[in-house]
Design a protein around this nucleic acid. Sequence first.
DNA 1: GTCCGGCTCATACTTTAGTATGAAAACTGC
DNA 2: GCAGTTTTCATACTAAAGTATGAGCCGGAC
Lengths: 183, 183
Amino acid sequence: MKFGIQINSKRKEFLIYGISMFMVLFLLKMLEAHFLVYNYRLDFFIGAIAILFTVLGLWLALKLVKPKVETRIIEKEIHIEKEVVVEKEVLVEKEVYIEKEVYIDNTAPKEINQKEIEKLGLSKRELEVLNLMAQGLSNEEIVAKLFISLNTVKTHSSNIFLKLDVKRRTQAVEKAKRLNIIH
Amino acid sequence: MKFGIQINSKRKEFLIYGISMFMVLFLLKMLEAHFLVYNYRLDFFIGAIAILFTVLGLWLALKLVKPKVETRIIEKEIHIEKEVVVEKEVLVEKEVYIEKEVYIDNTAPKEINQKEIEKLGLSKRELEVLNLMAQGLSNEEIVAKLFISLNTVKTHSSNIFLKLDVKRRTQAVEKAKRLNIIH
DNA sequence: GTCCGGCTCATACTTTAGTATGAAAACTGC
DNA sequence: GCAGTTTTCATACTAAAGTATGAGCCGGAC
């Protein structure tokens, strides 16, 4: 369960802005040459340029800072579906990836720290349990989500606590979030 | 007790951008100066203005977005001190406010939602307990921090759960963080 | 003064969480 | 197939969390 797609199209943006800036400047030269008589409207002209480029700079900077909307996979749902296989009904788990448009704030949620997970030796299933824990679910509710027994969930929990070196689920969640193991 | 201190590298980016823009414009001016010989002093002047105000705009925008360094109270420690009062040693709680300089990023960690707290009717003490909960502390540990009985902590907890409309501490923490009631 | 909300605490109880230990499937890589 | 890990589950237990109810204390509002 990983969704961490980095965007790095800033260089392209810089190029576009640079070119447009160049064009604006060129346009100004044209205007200057054709419509403005230097001696009379010079002060006006300079003022206009000043304002224009101030706004341009502002717009530019804000554009770069503004959160971007991107499509990325943010959810993985497991759908239980019935399938009839040779006269027998079988329940089949299907992973359905749901894409949604989300605001990405470059200061906000960090990537999942895969290295840390490895270092701690957390298994896939343990991570699942940990994530559900972080959502405030009780063991019973986790049971209902993962279709396993309560004892199994407890075993996973205990193992998680051991690996994270904590004593309780609340601590586990706190530490996991701090280490960017979960969101 | 954690406070997201984060220094982003936006400033550096803007600086780089500003400088490169400057260089581009300068190059442009040089080219112009060579081919358009007439009135080349004015061209330079206008170019300089353009550059200056672009940078100004950038700087302005940067100033608006830039994380501000502010001094604010981020910790409240309770010091237990001995005081000799009329031949008797007494333990006295003293609240010591510690001020630190922290980076405040207006795009990142949100302010504590005071309105929401009011709306939910959470009392001062309940908030304290909630915060300690969020740090992963057990009731026993909260007892040790607040110098109250276990039963009191349990009472507070129950009231918190009622007010937040949740069933467990893990849910309470999750919801409280979501509502920006706590960090 | 009286009332009220917040804080404190207690008893008694139920429920959930967590530990310890052992063990059987299932999958993974060689 | 075999070794090793993961996942699963069980039993039996202890510890912690949470509920329900009642009550005393205190400070501020009216």
